[in-house]
């Protein structure tokens, strides 16, 4: 019976949810249910019964024409197994690209600091302290990082339709749901590892400052390295998890929640780079590497508050 319900759900997914349409849908469902039980009583197997019920359904367009109902412009289609498989293999590649790109961006800061430190101690002759040449590694890392990051993000561009405008057949939905549950422990491990690496990252500053003042900057570099590594774990586990949620339309990706996500996404793309800039400015101008990292947890907290308040008000508005 679940198959029949999914079949009807998918057919009605793109239709306006008026009382009339809902009544029609429940009527059709009751009929199909009755026919199904009749077939079962006549000794048909589950699959045969479902096959007969669906073959006798007819063409929904015939009914829509009579009811004068237009489908939503973007019609929801069913995704194929193959589409979903390529989606996940591409998603994994994209996650690797994005994680690596972000890591390079973060490490560009470390490269700059190490460069300056080496120049100060005279380890590299041709670069003098605060010379513009010391910016070269920084820019190389940033350019490579941003390039790879954008490349990774572009990879998923072609899958926007699959993520938002498609439905899953019953069998595919069950399969993905099972995978989603099965990958939960790996996801939790990944997130915990990532968070731990970020949390312990400042320890390197304290540790290396024990060796003397000259080692401060190496401590900062190690801290950035640890954060970068942590973020690798967060991005890879998070993106894969989100992939499942998008296709299964769970939590934030439920159809009605999408609009607020777009706004939150835009705000996030402004707020986080801003946090990085503030972090680097505080570090370079105020030499506050030891305390500037507080920018990130504070941003995280404020952003979390913003997005939950925004979702709550958006939901409130919709319910009026």
């Amino acid at each position: 019976m679940e198959t029949i319900r999914t079949y009807l759900d998918n057919l009605f997914a793109g239709l306006p949810k008026t009382n009339r349409v809902q009544a029609l849908r429940s009527e059709l469902y009751l009929n199909m249910e009755e026919r199904y039980h009749e077939m079962k009583a006549a000794g048909k197997t589950e699959n045969e019964a479902i096959g007969i019920v669906i073959s006798e359904f007819g063409n929904i367009d015939e009914l829509l024409m009579e009811l004068n109902i237009q489908r939503d412009e973007k019609q929801l289609r069913e995704a194929t197994d193959e589409q979903v498989n390529t989606y996940f293999s591409e998603l994994k590649k994209a996650a690797r690209n994005i994680a690596f790109g972000v890591m390079l961006c973060i490490l560009s800061g470390a490269a700059l600091i190490v460069c300056n430190a080496l120049a100060e101690t005279g380890a590299i002759r041709f670069i003098e302290s605060s010379n513009s040449l010391s910016l070269v590694p920084f820019f190389l890392f940033t350019v490579a990082g941003v390039g790879i990051l954008v490349y990774g993000a572009m990879r998923m561009e072609g899958y926007k339709e699959l993520e938002t405008q498609t439905l899953l057949s019953h069998h595919l939905k069950e399969k993905l749901q099972a995978e989603y549950e099965a990958t939960r422990p790996a996801f939790i491990k990944g997130i915990i590892t990532g968070i731990c690496l970020c949390i312990i990252s400042p320890v390197f500053i304290f540790l290396l400052s024990e060796f003397g003042a000259g080692y401060d900057s190496y401590g900062v570099s190690l801290m950035l390295f640890s954060v970068a590594l942590g973020i690798q774990f967060l991005i890879k586990s998070g993106m894969l998890r989100d992939g499942y949620k998008k296709l299964l339309k769970l939590e934030d990706y439920a159809l009605e929640k999408r609009r607020s996500n777009q706004v939150i996404g835009v705000v996030a793309s402004v707020v986080w780079p801003l946090a990085v800039v503030i972090f680097l400015l505080l570090g370079f101008l105020k030499h506050a590497w030891g305390t500037a990292w507080i920018v990130f947890p504070v941003t995280g907290l404020l952003f979390g508050i913003f997005s939950s308040v925004y979702s709550a008000t958006a939901k409130h508005k919709e319910s009026i």
């Binding site: 029609l24 009527e27 009929n31 009914l63």
Partner: peptide
């Protein structure tokens, strides 16, 4: 609806079985 489509099937001895969507278009 269901009763009517069942009657059609029975009376025509299975020669004609009306599709659900056809049935409801006709009702409309």
């Amino acid at each position: 609806g269901y009763e009517l489509s069942r009657q059609i099937r029975e009376r025509t001895e299975g020669l004609y079985s009306i599709k659900e969507t056809t049935l409801y278009s006709a009702f409309e």
